[in-house]
Computed example of a mutant assay.
Amino acid sequence: MPSRLRSALLAAALCHLSCAPLLAQEPAPAPSVERLDPALDAVIAPGTPVERVATGFGFTEGPLWHEGRLWFSDVTGDRMRAVSPDGRVEELIANSGGLPNPPAGASIGSNGMAPAPDGTVLMTQMGARRIVKVGKDGRLTPFLSDYQGKRLNSPNDLVYDGSGALWFTDPPFGLFNGMDRDPAKELPFNAVFRYAGGRLTPVITDMTLPNGIGFSPDFRTLYVGNYGPEMYVRAYDVRPDGSLSAPRELIRFPGGRGGPDGLKVDTAGNIWMTGPGGIRIVTPKGKVLGQIRLPETAANLAFAEDGYTVYITGSTSIYRLHSKVKGMLPLYADRK
């Protein structure tokens, strides 16, 4: 999450405490699905409701369906939590960003998560600037923290490809003293990394703020979102050796609240991507079929349960809706 959202979140929190009468008079618009193309009906049925499952958090991110619940991060609250389908919330990890004495309101909590082949869950720690393994007992074990002896910026989102290689984005959002200008920044780029065979390789280094990441169902296309200043999602062809070719812009976003943050792909190949105004459902050719609008900023989403349930992390809340198309579940998901 970029630093400019921090002030907005703090202002929202203060308004929540001091402007209750005003908020009561001006309720936020209800979440809804906007149909922009008739083909959306094959993905989300007309009239599908978007319900709020839980609320009261700082800034929710990194959703993962695991062991029958949605695990998610609160990047400003510095907590990792789980919410059950009936809305019950449990704190799983305090100080999930791993930074001692973190500054209040900074983007230093945990973020993206992905199940690993050994039964653990990989979790990015923006504060500690690393990826850790979350064991069955909740213990954290360091996994990746540097490239060629230089510390990572603040790993954000991550995904395994079909061969078992791990890919992750590494923007500077967790460097709270100016991001790219932070003296603590050690790498000269904000990369997309690939980790395979014990080797970490920066495969994309020309994006300013790489963020959401995902693959097509056949794993031959990689999608990566760039949060800003230019907001877009790129597609790349993936060669058998893991190298990339043919970069092209799939979609470019206008200005507005939010940005191309998290993204996921369904089994029909549609890309569900956050952006200003909500979540767009986009075909592999870049055609926008529709948009899920929320009263808050949509940060990320996850396909859950049987793959037809979509959970959305939207600022202070968790939302849910039903999809007619099954989503791609993580490679090593427990399928519960």
Rank of each mutant, 00 (worst) to 15 (best):
I213S: 06
G174V: 01
L23N: 02
K324R: 15
F59R: 08
S243K: 08
T76F: 04
G164P: 03
K324L: 15
W71E: 07
V43R: 01
N156F: 03
S163C: 00
M231Y: 02
N156K: 07
V192C: 05
I93Y: 09
M231Q: 13
E91R: 07
S243H: 14
T141Q: 03
R248F: 04
P202V: 13
R257F: 09
P217E: 07
M126E: 08
D41R: 08
L200V: 07
L70N: 11
P210Q: 13
D266L: 09
S110H: 13
L122D: 06
V288W: 10
Y160L: 00
A82K: 04
R280K: 12
R79H: 13
L10S: 03
G77E: 13
D161E: 09
G56N: 09
G255W: 04
S107Q: 13
D180E: 14
D266Y: 06
R181F: 10
N211S: 02
N101P: 00
S96D: 13
V134H: 07
P210R: 10
R252N: 01
F215M: 01
T55W: 10
Y160W: 15
L222S: 08
Y232L: 12
T313R: 13
W65M: 01
P172D: 09
D74P: 02
K264V: 15
A106E: 15
S107P: 01
G138T: 11
H66Y: 11
R280L: 10
P100T: 08
I131A: 02
A165W: 05
C15P: 00
P117F: 11
R35Q: 11
D137C: 06
N101Y: 08
S107L: 01
S163D: 15
D161P: 05
P260N: 05
K133S: 11
T205G: 05
Y232A: 07
L99F: 03
C19N: 05
T55C: 00
R252F: 01
L140N: 08
R181P: 00
S18A: 08
L329D: 07
K133I: 06
P21I: 05
V282T: 15
T283M: 00
L23F: 03
R220Y: 05
L263N: 12
R335N: 12
K336P: 04
K150H: 10
E90Y: 03
L122P: 10
V325D: 09
G77R: 13
G259S: 07
R79P: 02
S3I: 04
A30Q: 14
